[in-house]
Design a protein around this nucleic acid. Structure first.
Lengths: 349, 349
DNA sequence: TTGTAGGCGTTATCAG
DNA sequence: CTGATAACGCCTACAA
């Protein structure tokens, strides 16, 4: 009744074969005669051996089957965003065939907790950085020094690091053009966060925005409406959009006839605010979103929005990782969004 | 310019010390003289050595610093629920001091993908099973055979496995009592999924429900309103609640004056449906939720609901894991929800 | 088809 | 405070 777990050597001994043979029975890398296989399996059963210890295997093979996903501080915050969720789904799906799972890690610089796991200390085969803005970039040297493949989604990590990007500016421009073609001239923009602090409020016309997504989408809208005022939110949520909408619709004389929101959740909030202000959507105000994700509770509205291939983004990141682990050159990918017309936009009155 | 990464042995050689000494410099387990430490650090720098290889360390130490979280099929689906997100946050927080991170794994039986990582093949120190209903229970023998500590959240895994549970029935009963005390008699219940398939519709009065949460909360409500009709939803979302609400409010003559929803998201949907049917909340219909999570876009309503300690649930699971890894006896915990009165309930007209 | 031998990179133990 | 030694459990040339 020893406490030690059985090892493959034990199994081999009981089965009366050599360790390598027993190993092969489990890995299937080499043909084994049926009788030996059976003996080994039986021995394993009798010992309660459930297969090779992954820890030992990963040392030997140099692979741990784990891909790190570096997220911001709070999982809760991150997964509020449907786009992130779909992204993770795509990623999980794409790395599964590699025998890899996703390890959630926080950013290295948020170490309030003693000896928390980090990119440096975790046994990982690769890392995915999401939204590589500033602070995330600090993680890079670490993984690079360890020689771990990295891929960046929605962000720029510099030379030689594959990126999975979106045509944010182009796509947003297309939506803006559509809005203009509908005859709208008084247009307001509701943006995602403009900085890490999540400063809420009107964005100065000449402000430099450090957050890639926000900047790019804003530029796209400004390509068509150069003077449109832009209001920055703290995050991507209905509540944030609602608060922004309240401000936009506060003054009946200056209120916009169309609002370009940088996410579907924000757009949903803006719509709520419009209703709240006694405005009908789309008759009195047109609203566009971005993302093309199902917004829980938005029915019967169907947003006019840009459908981004969120799951594909994850899959592309997974594919890049697979390539790198294979020793192949990873590709940076630039995905494109599709403009979809819903029932939240109409001709300017 | 060899491609091999430097090992601690290389560092030791360059520093002119023994490998064990070099190791100790990194682990800090034993005092080292400043001069040697410096020499080792310098050697490491010059070789680009970033610290012990986690794979080797985990073999040696028998710890990988990874805790598996077994989720249903889709991350997207799972993380829609704010309760799950908070739970994960608490869990991450609680295992971080152990130097552990969270590995997302799918259920073993959903293996459509060849060689996907599983509870059997991943190097994990412990596992958390969330919502241990039926199919999840299949994972148990596997981990137990491997001698891996397991804790179950919101579900029953049988003997000897620590559980983190909630006072679902008691809590729901308290809410129901409150509703009754307000004078409501025609009450309907909107429930979470009643089976894995997510069958939508009225629940037969004598139906046996296999999903623990749903059953327990339903019993709590029925303790007070034994004959209240219950309508089952497919999931916990505003849209699901809306659909249910539509049915409840379809016939003005039989419509309930109060609805007990089994989650806040469902309650939000029911409220929408009520508005949609021209009913005012709470004047015409009272609605209660369950969970006490912020529902994006629900303002200005503040739900009358049961606030469950979602993050604490995660932390408790983490604590149980910490205990087991420490060789201590883990505790099963029974957390309690707090009844909170919002503005979605009022006296029966 | 099976066995032998060596090493993957660490770290705990124990002796100096 | 430092160093030698021995595992940790497995996999894979290579030889038989």
């Amino acid at each position: 009744m020893t406490n030690r777990r059985a090892t493959i050597a034990d199994v081999a001994r009981v089965a009366g074969v050599s360790p390598s043979t027993a190993s092969v029975v489990f890995s299937g890398k080499t043909p084994v005669s049926d009788t030996t296989r059976l003996r080994v399996i039986e021995a394993a059963d009798s010992l309660g051996y459930t297969g090779p210890d992954p820890r030992a295997a990963s040392l030997r093979l140099g692979r741990s089957g784990i891909v790190a996903v570096v997220v911001g501080s709070s999982l809760n915050f991150m997964f509020v965003d449907p786009v992130q969720r779909l992204l993770m789904d795509g990623l999980a799906e794409a790395v599964a065939p590699l025998g890899a799972g996703l390890l959630l890690l926080r950013r290295d610089d948020e170490l309030d907790i003693e000896n928390a796991p980090t990119l440096t200390t975790a046994s990982i085969d690769a890392a995915v950085l999401i939204g590589c803005d500033g602070s995330l970039r600090a993680s890079l040297p670490i993984v690079q020094a360890r020689g771990i493949p990295v891929v960046v989604v929605e962000g720029d990590a510099g030379e030689g690091i594959p990126r999975i990007a979106l045509d944010n500016r182009d796509a947003q421009r297309r939506a803006a053009q559509y809005v203009r073609d509908l005859g709208h001239a008084r247009v307001a923009i509701v943006t995602l966060w403009q900085d890490a602090a999540g400063t809420v409020g009107w964005i100065a016309p000449d402000a430099e925005i450090a957050v890639d997504v926000t900047r790019d989408r804003l530029q796209g809208a400004r390509d068509v409406f150069p003077d449109a005022p832009a209001f920055a939110c703290a995050g991507s949520s209905i509540d944030d959009g609602f608060a922004a909408g309240r401000v936009l619709f506060a003054d009946p004389r200056t209120r916009p006839t169309a609002v370009i929101a940088q996410s579907d959740l924000l757009a949903a909030g803006v719509i709520r605010a419009a209703e709240d202000a006694g405005l009908r959507v789309p008759q009195d105000v047109s609203v566009t979103g971005f993302d093309g994700v199902p917004v829980d509770g938005l029915a019967p509205y169907e947003l006019t929005t840009l459908v981004q291939p969120a799951t594909a983004k994850g899959r592309a990141a997974g594919a890049a990782i697979a390539a790198m682990l294979d020793g192949r050159e990873p590709e940076s990918v630039n995905l494109t969004s599709t403009f979809r017309i819903g029932n939240t936009t109409s001709r300017a009155g």
